[in-house]
């Protein structure tokens, strides 16, 4: 719902460009007039990105971060979706296990850092474990709620056509819960991307999070800090866009509110 009439087509290009330009100009001039020697201007950041690309460490760092998120997130989905389906399907199991999940869930995955270092040492496994923790609970909870919210009518219709429980789960309950599961996966991926940066700042020595902290610690290269932040933002945005594509698939579209 908007108060104004439909904007013209050219406005769709003009306004974002204008806002972007205003933002960059504001940033540039505030750095210039504050006389900051440390905080980078947009031009510095752009040079920083170029420098990172030239040095060639950047690709390695991006791949490291993506690998950690990929492995941790996939493990969380692989274990979390079946676990959530089972907990939603058997109310008794859900009733017993749910309080434990609710207690573990609000423990910030970052608070697990010391334990995960003790268990897995400084390295990939520790970071992956943290990402797994961050993604696992949202996925379990979304899958569980997805199953619980399947309208009883769908289950009845499935039973009416003579489906056995396993078939009912595969052909009715899972597809009916899928939109909510996908939404949970998307939220979990966002959290995973947030956690990987923290984990890399503390527990390992590669990846985009490490780049941020390293650029600061070794010589206060804030141009590289901001460059790395931008990359984190862009890659996170691309991951999110990829997931939104998934939500547009026709067999799950029905479950999402139509967007304006």
């Amino acid at each position: 719902m908007n108060s104004l009439a439909q904007p013209a087509k050219w406005e769709k290009v003009l306004w974002p460009l204008l806002a972007g330009a205003v933002f960059l100009a504001g940033w540039h001039f505030s750095v210039k007039y504050s006389g900051s020697k440390i905080f980078p201007s947009p031009v510095d950041v752009q040079k920083g990105v170029a420098e990172l690309l030239r040095k060639g460490v950047l690709w390695g760092y991006i791949v490291d971060s993506l690998r950690r998120v990929g492995v941790g997130f996939s493990l969380a989905a692989l274990l979390g979706i079946p676990a959530g389906l089972i907990l939603g399907w058997y109310p008794a199991a859900g009733q017993v296990v749910n309080p434990v999940i609710q207690m573990l869930r609000p423990i910030s995955p970052i608070a697990w850092i010391p334990l995960s270092i003790v268990w897995f040492g400084v390295g990939d496994a520790a970071a992956i474990y943290l990402i797994f923790l961050g993604a696992f609970f949202p996925i379990v909870v979304a899958s569980m709620n997805g199953v619980r919210n399947v309208p009883s009518m769908f289950r009845r219709a499935g039973r009416n056509f003579g489906l056995k429980p396993a078939q009912l789960l595969a052909k009715v309950v899972f597809p009916a819960a899928l939109p909510q599961i996908i939404m949970g996966l998307r939220i979990a991926l966002g959290i995973a991307w947030l956690v990987v940066v923290a984990a890399e700042m503390i527990a390992v020595d590669s990846g985009l999070g490490y780049l941020v902290i390293d650029a600061r610690n070794s010589g206060k290269r804030y141009d590289l800090v901001v460059a790395a932040m931008l990359l984190i933002g862009l890659i996170g945005l691309m991951l999110d866009i990829a997931f939104r594509r998934l939500e547009k698939l026709k067999s799950v579209r029905w479950g999402f509110r139509l967007e304006a």
Binding site: F154, R156, A157, R159, G162, V172, S251, V252
Partner: peptide, 20 residues
């Protein structure tokens, strides 16, 4: 004793599966 495919229950149109 239970539902059976020999007799089918038709709900209001909300009973169609939206994912198929």
């Amino acid at each position: 004793t239970g539902p059976d495919p020999r007799r089918i229950f038709v709900f209001q149109e909300r009973g169609v599966f939206p994912w198929l």
